[in-house]
């Protein structure tokens, strides 16, 4: 049993500390919004925030997230109000299948926190998540729109 702070709540999670955070979130904490795509830090589908920074949770053991603030897609909206990135994603119909989009939005939200007005070059560098449906043009447009919001 380990204690994890997820989306502002500290909870006991019955998991070995060596377990990748992705699986602890999905299977032990019941938060399936964070997705599995590759398991080797390649695709970004599993992106969450750890202390406000984007992290690929498939490659972070639970032990290194203990004592830190973990935010998942389920915790991105605050008090029922969508995060600006979510709002733009909804307004602009960014997702296709949507499977990559939890990770995509978490990566984008972290970028905007560090760089509220990112350039295209900033975006190219920071957002390396894979979207097989090919929403990259929508994502880029969405980031610029969210930066204005």
């Amino acid at each position: 049993m380990v204690k994890l702070n997820i989306n502002g709540k500290t909870q006991d999670v019955d998991v070995d500390p060596s377990t990748p955070l992705l699986w602890a979130l999905r299977e032990n904490a019941g938060l399936t919004g964070t997705k599995y795509g590759c398991g080797i830090a390649q695709c970004g589908a599993c992106t969450v925030h750890i202390d406000g920074r984007a992290a690929r949770s498939c490659s972070v053991p639970v032990s290194s997230a203990m004592g830190k603030q973990i935010t998942t897609i389920e915790g991105l909206a605050v008090n029922g109000k969508l995060h600006p990135v979510q709002q733009v994603w909804l307004d602009k119909d960014v997702p296709q299948c949507g499977y990559c989009q939890s990770g995509m939005m978490m990566a984008v939200a972290a970028l905007l926190k560090q760089k509220p007005k990112p350039t295209d070059a900033d975006i190219d560098k920071a957002i390396t998540n894979i979207c097989r449906c090919g929403t990259y043009s929508r994502v880029r447009e969405g980031i610029h729109a969210a930066a204005k919001a």
Binding site: R26, T32, T34, I73, E74, W89, D93, G98, S102
Partner: peptide
């Protein structure tokens, strides 16, 4: 606009891999 976007932006959408 698409009818089915809302659940995809909150993590609520249940894909096959998510079922419990």
């Amino acid at each position: 606009k698409r009818l089915d976007t809302a659940d995809k932006i909150t993590g609520k959408q249940i894909y096959g891999i998510d079922i419990k």
